[in-house]
Amino acid sequence: MSDQNDEGETALPCVLITSCDPGFKEEELVMQILGASALPEPTKTEDVVVWYPWTINNKYYTANISLCVVPSPFSMNSAVAQSTQAFIVYFDSKTKDGLTAVTPWVALVEELAPEVLILVCDHVCENGVSRQEAQQWCLAHAFELVELNPEELPDEDDDFPESTGVKRIIQALNANVWSSVEMKDEHNQGFGLMSSLVASRHNNPRSVAETQCQSNSADENTEGQKTGSCQNSAEVDSVVDPMTDMDIQELANLTAGDADVDNFERLFTKLKEMKDKASSMPHEQRKVHAEKVAKAFWMAIGGDQDEIDGLSSGEES
């Protein structure tokens, strides 16, 4: 706890778990997610807020995270606020106004903007909160509805059956890129473009433009990437005209920034723009330009310098 003021100390990302139903304890959900019959030793306890450790391990990555139990919005603290990346709230679906109890959380959650938002109940009730009502609430607040014990079970003959209950909660928590994610190597290769986008999102939050070369040895974690971009700008500076340089810089920023869909699309729009520009050039100049762009792009996505070193055609042919 004393580490909290230390800026270098970063808490593990957490799943904020809360219940708006006095009859349902958050710990119940924690145990089910962990698949344990008893609660593990908490990693930390602060007042009524309790952290439990959990490691997500799937095909693509491992991530150490915390399951953090916060009984009410009033017991929120800054440590939780800063590390919340997923939010799970249980509500009482048997009473008509079950969802109003969730309201105090809504504004708070909007501010924290966690990636994963799940609304949990035992099962939707016609005399309490109906499916339609719950669904509508979820759509309005961008939550997913998960019933722990749904009345209608999904069709078993379906080739792609829906998961329900805690299994679905775990699935949804897996389908997220946590800031503590450690990618598994074998899936990091391939054509590497998307995995570099995803990986760079958290490893290198600063844009490449801001990353000055002097910070090379600052931290080992991102050193490889930083030296990559430094070499990139050094090499690019010497050979490319200012406009192209700006374009390339933007490409680099796009690959280093948030790896969302928009960015990814923008990346391709940008590439297309640069291609269009090249199409108005004379044939020889065009080849040289294309090569520079390709090389810069390669460097921008964190490719290995060695790979393209011997590939220069523009100068000699």
Binding site: Y60, F160, N174, V177, M194, S195, V198, F264
Partner: peptide
């Protein structure tokens, strides 16, 4: 489309799509 994805990833999941968007 889903069947092709399923064949390629052998049981495709949301995770496969997230981490192999290029493919």
């Amino acid at each position: 489309f889903i069947e092709v994805l399923d064949k390629y990833f052998s049981r495709v999941s949301e995770l496969d799509i997230m981490f192999n968007l290029d493919k």
